[in-house]
Design a protein around this nucleic acid. Structure first.
Lengths: 250, 250
DNA sequence: GGTTGATGCGTACGGCGTACGCGCCAGCCG
DNA sequence: CGGCTGGCGCGTACGCCGTACGCATCAACC
């Protein structure tokens, strides 16, 4: 009773494991800790940046911090919590400077920043997909900013949340797809900054020649311009902003 | 030379490892194989659906198929390739029935289907983020459909690609975020279909009370309606379609 | 009917996340 | 100021993972 896994139980609030953020808040400091959570997060981010998320292990992280493997578990309950720390660490709300009175500028800036962060830390895409809880302090601060930008507008609370989730959804998905494309380019030996058309001309050639995708083949045959991913991303954000504005009458 | 990891090398087409799809095409059948690729993919999907992606291992998959672990490696070069098979297997272009002449309907249908697939197979979100190559046969067929819907419109090839990538980006990101929310609800003991407001009232209460997110707290305090995720998703798709249509003059 | 190449598979290796329990020391209380 | 105690660092160990390698086997072809 109570501790069973039955999905039907309403789950008393008490038996819900508290997130690492809540623990950090309520148990502010300890006797003599040799590490700090930001320190751990920074080391983990550095490791993942350098060698990829799949190369990040508790052992390697501990070694890079000069402590024993199991020492990390005094700071973090599991590797998933470590990922949460990392996700929070790469978001820096203090770089957001757009005027809160210009809601379009605020959303554009946050979305663009999301993309840049994903490109700078490609592991972020996989980490986000693995960790269920994305409500970290830094991200909440960003959300707070978005709400602030919408506050003067005649929207219901639900509409504001929808607005935020829509923009966030696009930013997340478009960034993820772009990271996928870059990884593929890199893996195939073209540089990560190469022209996507190289892929089309090289590895996809057999696909197009298979005759099963005639319209795609024609598109490629007729010639595509080099892709400006940053501009394309911003067009997407603007399109979404415009569409939502019309729909919500603002 | 040639096989080095130097990122600068232009990568001759020959030394690029061929994708599993290309191999499947060019080496159509073999002597006497006991398994088929669709069979393997189906078993892997069933396992991941039942126990989650992290519980899917080559050993368990082999056992569920009644073969030895290493037998699988005659069909698949690595676990990543298995994930590619799975990603392809859950996409079924034959269920797409919208009239190709109605491009809005085509895109709406594909995006909505993407969401439904992600909810039915939550591991898909993480799998997509892990595997670089998402150009599987089934997905290409879907892309072909989208191009077809745009074909009669006065758009350049680049604009068509941008259009597709924008909608795809939103569909991917919004679905991923929704899966995240569901996972969190489930982990906290509320059912996966529960009201998101339970989260706000329960696990996020300490956050709101911390005073650092006053606008978020006010929003929750003023009352939010239950979230209709399906409707919200479609609003997002429609907003994006409208915004792009205006921007591209169609 | 002999040859050949692909297939199924057993073994083994290095690495992973982390449960558990032990020494140890800083901080507080008397 | 001295004893206590709770947190900390950590060593060991367990079960699981992906997969390299090599060997027997057997279908298919000449």
């Amino acid at each position: 009773m109570g501790k069973t896994k039955s999905a039907g139980a309403p789950a008393k609030e008490a038996d819900v494991p508290r997130s690492i953020w809540e623990r950090l808040e309520t148990a502010p400091r300890s006797g003599r800790a040799t590490l700090t959570h930001p320190q751990i997060a920074a080391a983990a981010v550095a490791l993942a940046d350098a060698e990829g998320l799949e190369a990040l292990s508790m052992r390697k992280l501990a070694e890079s911090l000069g402590v024993a493997t199991m020492a990390l578990y005094r700071y973090v309950d599991s590797k998933d919590e470590l990922l949460e720390l990392m996700i929070d660490a790469v978001v820096d709300p203090s770089v957001l400077t757009a005027d809160l009175g210009d809601w379009r500028a605020v959303f554009r800036e946050i979305a663009t920043r999301h993309r840049e962060t994903s490109l700078a830390h490609p592991w972020l895409v996989a980490a986000q997909a693995q960790v269920p809880n994305l409500l970290t302090p830094a991200r909440n601060e960003v959300a707070e900013r978005m709400i602030g930008a919408l506050d003067p507008l005649p929207l219901t609370g639900d509409q504001k949340m929808q607005f935020i989730r829509a923009i966030d959804g696009f930013a997340r998905g478009a960034s993820g797809a772009e990271v996928n494309r870059r990884m593929m380019m890199e893996r195939r030996g073209y540089g990560p900054d190469g022209d996507v058309r190289l892929l089309l001309r090289g590895s996809m050639q057999w696909l197009l020649r298979s005759g099963r995708y005639p319209r795609m083949a024609k598109l490629v045959r007729d010639g595509l311009a080099p892709v400006d991913s940053a501009a394309e991303f911003e067009i997407g954000v603007d399109a979404m902003l415009d569409g939502l504005a019309v729909r919500f009458g603002i």
